[in-house]
Each structure stands twice: as structure tokens, then as C-alpha cells.
Amino acid sequence: MAAMTPTTPTSSTAASGPAQRPSAARRARLWLANHFAVIAAILVLLYLFLPVAYTFAFSFNDHGRSNIVWQGFTWEHWQDPCGVPGVCESLVTSLQVGVISTVVATVLGTLMALAMVRYRFRGRSASNLLIFVPMATPEIVMGAALLTIFVQGFSNIGISLGFGTIVFAHIMFCLSFVVVTVKARLQSLDPRIEEAAQDLYAGPLQTFWSVTFPLILPGIAGAAMLAFSLSFDDFIITNFVSGNESTFPKFVYVASRRGIPAEANVIGFSMFVIAVLLVVGAQVVSSMRASRYKS
């Protein structure tokens, strides 16, 4: 027994000989010691999904004025998710902001990552700092700072709070995360592969498009996904810079005083399902490709 479980803390007591069966309590303890991490992991995953389950369940709540306690089952909210004024408009705004911010942040961030990894230049560590500090700054500070400049500074040049300012802000806070993600991918790329392309008559641009870009594309796609989810779910900064414009998180927050309408639960849960399907789909496709290589 001792030989089979060398890492259990109690193995010194197992010297009683192989003929003797260990007690049931001891076996249970050993089993627990071996499976502690797995059991804990499963419990943590359940914990992570608990609020999602609540969100799902309360999308069927036949609530009257306030959707806080369970009152009965209905399909009604799933049949007409836009039934509450403002909810679908805010969703559309969030999707638009998310797409624009993601595209711009991904392009700008990828360019920055290329510069940071591929070149040594003066001001490199200052740029590094400029990329890092936004990630270490609490959102509320960024939101407050943006509010002061939009209200006191940029309003003089005709910028007022609304859709545009939300997009400006979202691009800003997504940028650093894009840079870091793409940078990691670029750093793991063997520089010899790009040199081989140059050696085989590809100029700098051809090298980029035929070799570098396809190889860092998974990193760029990951960065874009990250940017979209950061943008789509942002509330704190949006709350400062949105003026009268409403995004989906802002709609939900404002509504939460009286209990969030079940239509919002429907939308929130649907977004969750769509995102999970996308991620799982991408996984399946890539593992299918991998297994095709093996055969």
C-alpha cells in the first residue's frame, strides 16, 4: 500500500504489513488525499456556474413588477425578449460598440505588438510601461479621468458623451490586452521561420502576409475575442462616458433596482449560449484538424 501511494502524508503508518487490510476510514482518507484537487475543482466549477443557473431559471419567472423572487413559470419572456422597452436597443448598442472597438483595438494592438517584439528602439521600455499601466489602473479611475476630459476638455471641440465616447474609451482599455496577447504569440514564434521566408526571396511585406500573419492569427483571434468580451461586458467605464446612451450592462444595472426584467435574463443567457457554442465549435474544428494530421 505504501508503495502505491508514496505522496500521501500518512504513508509511515502503513508499515503494518501487506497482509493487513487498511481500515475503511484510512482508505477513505487516502482516496480523498488522492482526489482532493479533482473534487475541489468540480465544486469550484459548480460554484462558477451557480449564478448562471439562477439567471437561466429567472428568465422563466412569471414576475409582475419585480423579478427578485420566484413567482411561477412562463415562456412569455423567451417568446418576446424585446418586450421590455430599451432592452434590445441597449443590446444592439453593445454589439455595435463591441464590434467597432474590437476591430480597431485588434488592428492597433497587433501593430504595437509587432513593434515591441520585432524591434529594438529608443523609448521601448516607456512604451512597455504605457501598455502596462492601463491594465494596472482601476476602471473607475479610467472612467473618471475620461469623464473629466470629455466634459471639461473635449466638449470644446464638439465631442459630447454618447456612442462615440463609449467607443473611444473601449478601444483604449482593450488595446493593452490585445498587445499582450498578440505579443505572447509573436514571442513564441521561431524567428528562423521568418528568416527562412526572407531567404526564399520574400520581401518584408510578403514575409509578413505569407508567414508571420498566418502563424500569429490564432493569437490575433484570441485577442479579438478577449477585446470583444471586455467591451461587451464593461459597465464601470461605460457608465462614466455614455451620457444618455445605454448599453446592455448599463440597462441591466439601472433596472436592477427594481429587479432585472426576465427579458434581460433571456438575452444574457442567450449570449452565454452563443459564446459557448462558438468556443466549443472552434475547439472541435481545431482538434479535428489535429487528428486529421495524425492519420
Binding site: P51, V52, T55, M271, F272, V276
Partner: peptide, 18 residues
């Protein structure tokens, strides 16, 4: 995926669920 997935529902919705 399970670790990331819950975060595809809105942060405010989940906090409200708590």
C-alpha cells in the same frame, strides 16, 4: 471553457443573481 464560460453572461446579471 467551463472556467471562462460563466463570464459570457453579463457581470451585472451574475452579481444580481448572487
Amino acid at each position: 471553457i467551463c472556467v471562462i464560460a460563466p463570464f459570457f453572461t453579463s457581470f451585472i446579471l451574475r452579481t444580481f443573481a448572487w
